[in-house]
């Protein structure tokens, strides 16, 4: 451990804002990269199912 306490860890020797801003934005980008294609897949499957139903009726 290179920090004495948890508040030390948060403060990052006065550079807390920069470090946590960087990691925060990175985390958001990672999340978006996972969530977007998963949502897209649900949409695709939904559309498919609707189309198949329509074709059956027709």
């Amino acid at each position: 451990m290179s920090f004495e306490s948890f508040s030390d860890f948060l403060a990052m020797g006065g550079h807390g804002l920069y470090v946590w801003l960087s990691y925060g934005v990175a985390a958001l980008i990672f999340l978006a990269n996972v969530i977007l294609p998963m949502k897209k897949k649900n949409e695709i499957v939904k559309k498919h199912v609707q189309r198949l139903k329509r074709e059956k009726v027709a």
Binding site: S2, M12, Y23
Partner: peptide, 14 residues
């Protein structure tokens, strides 16, 4: 990287 790596002697924790 955040908690265990040593701080840089010039840049500190940034």
């Amino acid at each position: 990287g955040l908690a265990f790596a040593p701080a840089d002697y010039q840049q500190g924790n940034s």
